[in-house]
Simulated assay, not measured.
Amino acid sequence: MTTVTVAVPFRAGALDREIHADYVTARLRELIPEARHLRVDVDGQFSRAAVRNEAVRQAGGGVVVLCDADTLPEAGPLRDAIAGAAGDGLLHLPYTTYRALSAEGTLAVYARGLDPHHAPAAETSRRPIGGVWVITADAYWAAGGMDESFVGWGFEDDAFWTAATTLLGAPVRHHGVITHLRHDPAVNTRSAEYRRNRGRYQTYLRARSSPTAMRALVGIPEEAA
């Protein structure tokens, strides 16, 4: 039987995000009670790439659910994604639609006990590729893991999606919804970190048509292919 680890990368320090992390962690335990549940951080500057790598290391094997601390999936699509990832070694996403709650919608979740998936959304989209990933530990490392040269906000999700597509095959989506709880945004598109991350991502786009080039970029020896 395949083991399942649900990991929430998170660092405390902002009250709204701490509240979200506590809520999401508790809900995930209700959705997948048989799984091992982790909340993961790493020392030093917070890096989503580094903390996700650490989460997969701690999982050790089996299927890993990497869920952002402000994002909640639905039970059915999440279980479908877990079963799919265990069987095919691809990256699975338990949603086709992303919903970002408004401040009022997020408040209704906590003050009125409203299910986040039914709370008012400020935005819906079918384009996002992050939020919740489901993948085996072996497949994660076969795609190179996450690139820890991405520091600060932006593009690490896009880079891993591109590497996984090139080295594993097209990611699989399962019909459903993920809902993002509102908090103060961290993005600064004028920062040096953002521009550096964007430039690094461009190297992934240039390598996406060549598995050999992609393996070289993510540090996988050709003999390990």
Results as ranks from 00 to 15, higher is better:
H92E: 09
E193G: 05
E74L: 00
L28A: 03
Y95P: 14
Y204W: 05
D68Q: 09
A14I: 12
E223Y: 00
A137W: 12
A100D: 14
G84I: 09
A81E: 13
H118T: 10
R112D: 15
D70V: 02
P33T: 02
P185E: 06
R99C: 08
L181T: 06
A69L: 05
A192E: 15
T25C: 06
Q202G: 11
T165I: 05
A59L: 05
H20R: 04
V187M: 04
G130E: 13
D41V: 11
V24P: 15
V187L: 10
D138S: 14
E54K: 01
Q202Y: 09
T165Q: 10
A216K: 11
A139L: 10
A142N: 12
F10D: 07
V172M: 07
A192N: 07
V177N: 10
T124W: 06
A108H: 04
R11A: 15
A164R: 09
R195H: 12
R208S: 07
M214P: 12
V187F: 03
A224C: 06
I82M: 07
G113C: 02
D157Q: 03
I135W: 10
D157F: 02
L72H: 11
A119M: 03
Y140M: 02
Y204E: 05
A216D: 12
D138F: 12
P120K: 00
A225P: 15
Y201M: 08
T97P: 11
A111S: 06
D16K: 02
G44Q: 07
G199T: 14
T179E: 10
A49P: 13
T106H: 04
L78E: 04
D41T: 15
H174K: 04
V63N: 09
L28R: 02
E74P: 07
M214D: 08
V56E: 11
E54S: 06
Q58G: 04
Y98C: 04
A86G: 15
